[in-house]
Design a protein around this nucleic acid. Sequence first.
DNA 1: CGTATTGTTATATA
DNA 2: TTATATAACAATAC
Length: 260
Amino acid sequence: MPELPDVEGFRRVFAEHAVNRKVTGVDVRDSGVLRGVTGRRLRETLTGQRFSEPRRHGKWLLVPVRGRDATMVLHFGMTGSLHWSDEDPHPHPHDRVIFAFRDGELRYRDQRKLQGLRLAPDDDALAGLLSGTGPDALTVTRKQLRDLLPGARQLKPALMDQSVLSGLGNLLSDEILWRARLHPRRKPRDLDDAEFGRLHKELRAVLRAAIPTGRVPPRPSWLTGRRDDPSGSCPRCGTTLSHGRVGGRSTVWCPHCQPG
DNA sequence: CGTATTGTTATATA
DNA sequence: TTATATAACAATAC
């Protein structure tokens, strides 16, 4: 699930509850989510310290450790999430790492463990971790977008390529292309100015609309609200939606609004 | 048993 | 060399 709006939601959870408060303990319940860091080192780096304001780049959540050079780096894969609890003493079975504070705890939850939690010891290491990622999708300009998209490739896989643009996943990409009326297999180099304008405009509009809810909202007026129905129809024109695979991912589009 | 899954990466194939 | 496809990762759900 986690795409840019979801991670933005997790950033808010972190900022609201866990920033500037002393970490009283780190409970690694499943070390399978630790990437390049041991539970011991994570505990030693964090315990007794405080987190600074978290930042987000694409689907990465970056949380500096105050008073140290280190930054904790979280990625949520397909099934990760972040939860604050100040009442429920029972962790969820998929809570893999729990950060304890005096008045509650922050739980890194992830069913599938496809990604996980890293610790960049300094800013150089942090830059290295993010060196392969393109600009954040939320702030990319229209000109940047046009310059970045590799011309020969299919539009949807190009949008989802994190080294091109950081933050878009499968659902967001389909939603954006549907609203921009562009077929997912179009070649970026074939788009005219008006089409590029629509792509950029709808990219921003979908992100801005999705961020307050912290997810791609499955509203009936959105493509995302209809994609799970095999016989679902286009919210705009009523045509039966097409289902297929593009770039190896399940893809939904309207054959009328998004002609090939 | 089989199928599928919102992310990423390595490897294979054309 | 380039673009695309596939498998793998892990843990489910149908």
